[in-house]
């Protein structure tokens, strides 16, 4: 591995920046895991901090038993449903509010005030309203995503180039055509920023609701492991969640660069 890297360096004296960054990232991970592994059992009690090896064993066992896939899928379904609902509502509401200055100024303080409420604090309320099934998790994920997408898209709608809108109007575009041809596409980069910010918050919403009342999902798995004083289990559940969010964010990034190929 190292000799291969070396020969590559010689073949091409300037190893690509992204190649170097990946190398540093790998070094960082190896150093952190080694430090954790060697500190566990010597400097720190493994009961509190577990160890990478123990977490890995738990992950393997859960994967073999199908437990991990089951709980991940539940959390993924909740988040995905919440994400789609929240993002769609956020975009539509932003387009509506952005199109009308009076409406914008009327609702702005209320939206900002509700945005300021920690979404997780709403979880008990949703559990009272919607029970302990998937519904309260989806609603909490949706609300978390909604605000980020709404604010981001609204910003994009407000920053649209008015000269471009005027140009389209003189060519005969009505309100709806202007929205479709100018305002929406020009707000799209902001919308994507909102989606990328919103995705992890969607997971936070779903997992937080799971931790309070549920019998499935990554939040349940974390809570359950902690209840059994299984530190490795808690870390394993969080690690699995981390991998999924990272992969989904990467997928969103790819989609983004495909959509904005005109840049």
């Amino acid at each position: 591995m190292s000799t291969q890297a070396l020969s590559e360096t010689q073949a091409e004296p300037t190893l690509g920046l992204s190649g170097r960054v990946w190398l540093y990232r790998a070094i960082f991970v190896v150093v952190m895991l080694t430090a954790w592994q060697s500190a566990s059992g010597t400097l720190l009690d493994p009961f509190w901090v577990s160890s990478p090896a123990a977490i890995f064993r738990t992950l393997v066992a859960w994967t073999a038993s199908g437990q991990l896939g089951y709980h991940l899928l539940i959390t993924f379904k909740e988040t995905a449903a919440g994400f789609v609902l929240g993002a769609t509502a956020g975009v539509l509401f932003a387009l509506l509010v952005g199109a009308n200055d009076t409406l914008h100024r009327t609702v702005d303080p209320f939206v900002t005030a509700i945005y300021g409420v920690p979404k997780v604090a709403l979880a008990p309320l949703f559990i009272m309203w919607f029970g302990i099934g998937l519904a309260p998790k989806i609603v909490l994920a949706a609300i978390s995503v909604f605000f980020l997408v709404f604010f981001s898209t609204l910003r994009g709608v407000r920053e649209v180039d008015l000269k471009m809108v005027d140009a389209l109007r003189t060519m005969g575009a009505g309100k709806f055509a202007t929205q479709r041809m100018v305002i929406f596409p020009s707000a799209l980069p902001w919308l994507f920023t909102g989606l990328k910010l919103g995705l992890p918050y969607g997971f936070v919403g779903a997992v937080a609701a799971e931790m309070m009342a549920s019998n499935a999902g990554i939040g349940y798995l974390t809570q359950n492991s902690a209840g059994q004083l299984d530190t490795a289990g808690v870390f394993a559940a969080l690690f699995a969640l981390m991998v999924v969010t990272t992969l989904l964010n990467e997928a969103l990034g790819r989609l983004e660069s495909w959509i904005f190929r005109w840049r």
Binding site: D161, K163, A167, V182, P185, F260, W262
Partner: peptide, 8 residues
């Protein structure tokens, strides 16, 4: 002012 739509 340049009013071409950059995404088209």
């Amino acid at each position: 002012h340049d009013s071409l739509l950059p995404w088209r």
